[in-house]
Amino acid sequence: MRDLARDAKRLVGRLGSAEDEVRADGGEPVDTQGSGPIAALKRNLANQQFRESMPFWLPAFLLMALFVYGAIIWNFMLSLTDPVGLGSPDYSDLDFDMYVQAFTSDSFVNATVNTFVLLVAFTLVSLVLGLVVAILVDRNIRFENTFRTIYLLPMSLSFVVTAQFWLWMYNFDNGVVNLFLDVLPFVDKVRWFSNPELALPAVIFALIWQFSGYTMVVYLAGLRAIPTEHYEAARVDGASTFKMYWRVIVPQLKGSTISATVVLMVFALKAFDFLYALRGTYLPYKGTDILATLMMREAFSNGHFAYAAAIGIMLFVLALGVVAPYLTYQYRSGQL
């Protein structure tokens, strides 16, 4: 959906610039008086290209406006109402009570902390792991394509499948993880999901397993774009293999890092599917409650729609906080 929004925005931008070109040619006299959106719309409507292209972009534009941005605005309005149980919300009395309630609630603070831990740990470890694997795969190893496919495969599975898969992996009696621990001396079997301190790390590990392959592919593409001469120049300059990567190659992967980070963070915020599929209820294992699960629970188990809407808006702001710097970066470097 976000992609669609971007496409629509790009389309509008392109139309604007096309119009500029027409005007630069002096082809059509248009009213250049006045500014602001209304005046801009008037100018656009006077443009023949703009009018003629409308059937192509207008339907999608209106659908997006209604169901994405309209829904967001509606959700925001809902978050400003007071709880009314199952009745219809009263839109005449709007305030920020629900936000105040959230910030003073232990479960909200706890879910926020978990969300951030998940976001940061999952993203960082996935990036580092993906980078290391990408570098190893890039060093002209045998069966490179096979390895690449194997690492990328988990990414193609749905969260429901990987959740079931990891439930078995972490099974106390005969899960592979515990069987492995059992072999090691001085280590006992662990109840991964029922221990609140281990549940979140276990979930993060499973998510890393699923997504580090994606990071690897992004980094691999970045590595392939670096000319061989840079490696050779660094070697002739006397750099060790580690220094060569650390000082010459990795800094050139900034673009790959940024785009992989954004995708990983957005996935981390959407980890709801995985947690829901693990337990099959809106109440995830203790210690793994994140904003998304809290929001669903408040809305559909407890019927606190206004409160859930407030959480949703905060989650939205978080996601925006992740994506906005990326979009700005892309816009600045002229890719948007």
Binding site: E229, H230, A233, A234, V236, Q252
Partner: peptide, 29 residues
């Protein structure tokens, strides 16, 4: 190894490190 040979090489594509300034490029070796 190349670094033990006391040589310096100039490449056809120059192979300047794009993320470093000219000063850093020259100091790197």
């Amino acid at each position: 190894e190349p670094k033990e040979r006391d040589i310096a090489m100039v490449f056809q594509s120059y192979a300047l490190y794009p993320h470093m300034t000219v000063r850093e490029n020259m100091a790197f070796g």
